[in-house]
C-alpha cells in the first residue's frame, strides 16, 4: 500500500488503481457500515480517493501503516457526511430512522468476528458501557452527545466512560 501511495505522490494513476484493486471492497464496506446507504457510501469513497491522491505525498513511513492512513481519510469523509445535517436532510424521516437504527446495530454487533485476538480480548475486558460507547464512536461515527443520548446518561458521564475505557484499552494492549 505504501508503494501505491508513493506512485500517487509521483502523479502516477496506477497507484490509484492498485489501491482500489486491493482495498476498494473494504473501503466500500467501511463506508457502508458507517453510513448505511449505498449512495452515500459511494460518494464518501470517491471523495476519499480524491483526497488520498492529493495528500499521498504527505504519507510518511514510521507514522503508522499505509492502510491505517488510507482508512483514516475515508473515516474522516464519512464523519463529515454524518455531521453535515443538510447532507442528510434529503432523506425523509423514515429513511433517516432506518439508517440510524441500522447504523446503531452495525456499531455494537459482530465483535465476535474481530480477528485481532489482542484487541478483541481487551475490548471484551472493558465494562459493557465503555465498550459500546467506544464502538459507537469508532464504527458508527457517533459524537459524545449522540452516544450520551443513546446510552441515556449525562454527557459528562459518557465522556468519562469513554476516556477511562480508552485508557484501559491502551494499557491492556501495551
Amino acid at each position: 500500500m505504501a508503494d501505491a501511495l508513493a506512485s500517487c505522490a509521483r502523479g502516477n494513476q496506477d497507484g490509484l488503481h492498485r489501491i482500489v484493486e486491493a482495498e476498494g471492497g473494504r473501503l466500500m464496506g467501511i463506508a457502508q457500515r458507517m453510513l448505511q446507504r449505498r449512495d452515500l457510501a459511494e460518494e464518501a469513497v470517491q471523495d476519499a480517493l480524491v483526497q488520498i491522491w492529493h495528500k499521498s505525498g504527505q504519507f510518511r513511513a514510521g507514522e503508522g501503516s499505509a492502510r491505517g492512513w488510507i482508512f483514516a481519510i475515508l473515516r474522516n469523509r464519512c464523519l463529515n457526511i454524518l455531521r453535515d445535517g443538510k447532507r442528510l436532510s434529503t432523506l425523509d424521516d423514515a429513511a433517516l430512522l432506518a439508517m440510524q437504527d441500522a447504523r446503531h446495530a452495525a456499531a455494537v454487533e459482530g465483535l465476535d468476528r474481530l480477528d485481532a485476538v489482542a484487541l478483541r480480548h481487551c475490548l471484551e475486558g472493558l465494562d459493557d458501557t465503555a465498550r459500546r460507547s467506544i464502538l459507537l464512536a469508532y464504527v458508527g461515527g457517533y459524537s459524545h452527545g449522540e452516544i450520551a443520548a443513546l446510552q441515556k446518561v449525562p454527557l459528562g458521564t459518557c465522556k468519562s466512560w469513554i476516556r477511562r475505557g480508552l485508557d484501559a484499552l491502551r494499557r491492556c494492549l501495551s
Binding site: 473494504r26 470517491q46 480477528d115 464502538l135 484499552l169
Partner: peptide, 27 residues
C-alpha cells in the same frame, strides 16, 4: 499512527461491499 493502527482491526472486520465498476474513472 499508533492509534489508527490500534483500531485498524475493527475496520478490517467490515464486510467488503461491491465496488462500482467505474469507480477509478469517476475519481
Amino acid at each position: 499512527g499508533r492509534a489508527r493502527d490500534r483500531f485498524l482491526p475493527i475496520d478490517l472486520m467490515a464486510d467488503a461491499a461491491p465496488v462500482p465498476a467505474d469507480l477509478v474513472q469517476r475519481v
